[in-house]
Amino acid sequence: MGYELIDHTGDLGLKIRSVDLKSLFCEAATALFDVISDLDLIEVREEREISVVGMDNEELLVAWLNELLYLHEVERLLFRDFKIIEIGEGKLKGTAGGEALREEYHIIKTAIKAVTYHQLEVRKENGGWSGRIIFDI
């Protein structure tokens, strides 16, 4: 997978790399649920449409991930399949596929309180895109 963990004393972070901006956002979401749970155990049984706004790509990335985290916490969903339909002009539209948490089956490895703006980065480099995010856990 296109990410590596950043070892932060209090919390945990991710560095993500991808070929384009849309797949960077998908990689980040996949990494988020890879940290939370075991991706291999998640099946795609339902899908949610997600729309968020943000001033720039960085804020959009945090908003997208925090929206997924919100659905995880309130509707107890685990996701593994992501698509970005459109991104630009301060808006993002995408979908997330997954299923409701089954307590006796799925595992929760890490509880994430929030995706923070600390040292946040989304940028074009070497013909691809890279991102950096720190979670509060």
């Binding site: 001033m55 960085e58 804020e59 908003a63 925090n66 919100y70 309180k113 929030a114 923070t116 703006y117 600390h118 040292q119 946040l120 509060d136």
Partner: peptide, 27 residues
Amino acid sequence: GHQVCDDYIRVMLRAAEKYGIELPDKQ
């Protein structure tokens, strides 16, 4: 509390720009 913090960080990102506050870190 996590949601209140996240909601208001978004408000404050705009506020910092509006009031011309320079930020060494967005958080």
